[in-house]
């Protein structure tokens, strides 16, 4: 059976793509963000993951408002990145892992998750940039991938408790996959930020740090908050932390922190990085 080697949560901001393209990682603005990654690279090198399940939210590249899934799972042989309209470089395609995709789909429906199955799927910066940050300059990406999308854009969003259960079901599915593969689960997005309205620029460092801490010790803590609560506490886009929570759910059982980094700001966002493994 496949083995889950651990999970990594990491912020996704389109702007990071430009910093990588312009090689400005060591500029004072970016250094505190990029310096978070080498310890995670070392850990990943030891874990030798073959497959990454990437839990993220699409920003109007693959899904439009005409059809907006709560949970969608990719089942394509390859995933293309494409022009998102904001001028960041397009990255080469990512290899899929069809067997795990379909096994996930079967298992999740069996466990009463009402997912959308996508045999074609464009992946946006929320998928590509975290992989680029974790495996810099490696094309094609050295791991095979399965994209899992959560709607964090058009309300109603799934509740935090539902996302945690979704993550647990993903974890059980990976562990029941008849394969010798080593799988890392990656959650992207967050932490606190708000892009629109008079409250744009909203950051809540205290909550973010609490969330990162509780994700290790007491992940159900955040499920006490409704979605409007989370918007109030973390900003309209801060709700992307649902992707982090789902990832934590997939690491069934107790976990320990491998490495964490937190820095404000990257563009409009409080950036977080949290690598975890089971104990």
């Amino acid at each position: 059976m496949a083995k889950i080697v651990g999970g990594i949560n990491v912020t996704h901001v389109p702007y990071i793509g430009r910093a990588i393209a312009n090689k400005t990682q060591q500029d004072p603005y970016w250094k505190p963000f990029f310096d978070g990654f080498p310890p995670v690279h070392d850990w990943l090198a030891k874990q030798k993951a073959d497959v990454a399940v990437v839990i993220y939210n699409d920003h109007g590249l693959n899904f439009f408002l005409d059809q907006m899934p709560t949970f969608a799972v990719g089942a394509a042989p390859e995933y293309q990145n494409a022009d998102e309209g904001w001028g960041i470089p397009t990255l080469p395609p990512y290899p899929g892992e069809l067997d795990l995709s379909w096994h996930l789909i079967e298992s999740l429906v069996e466990e009463e998750f009402d997912i959308v199955t996508c045999q074609e799927m464009l992946v946006d910066h929320a998928f590509t940039l975290p992989l680029e940050l974790l495996w810099p300059n490696q094309h094609p990406c050295p791991v095979r991938t399965v994209p899992v999308c959560i709607n964090t854009v058009q309300f109603p969003l799934p509740t935090a408790a539902r996302c945690f259960k979704f993550g647990q079901a993903i974890g059980r599915a990976i562990e029941s996959w008849d394969s010798a593969a080593r799988v890392v689960v990656i959650g992207t997005g967050g932490l606190s930020h708000q892009l629109e309205g008079q409250r744009a620029g909203f950051i809540n460092k205290e909550f973010d740090l609490m969330f990162m801490d509780k994700l290790i010790t007491d992940p159900l803590w955040v499920t006490r908050y409704s979605i409007p609560d989370l918007v109030e506490l973390t900003g309209t886009q801060g709700v992307e932390l649902l992707n982090w929570l789902t990832t934590r759910g997939a690491l069934l059982g107790e976990v320990a922190k491998v490495h964490a980094n937190y820095h404000v700001p990257i563009s409009n966002t409080a950036s977080g990085l949290l690598a975890m493994e089971n104990v």
């Binding site: 005409d66 709560t70 009402d114 959308v116 709607n151 109603p156 408790a161």
Partner: peptide
Amino acid sequence: IAQSVIQDDFDLTIVNKM
């Protein structure tokens, strides 16, 4: 209905054109 049943853990796809 979408709002209510999604809160009740049904993962609907919201469709605005079909």
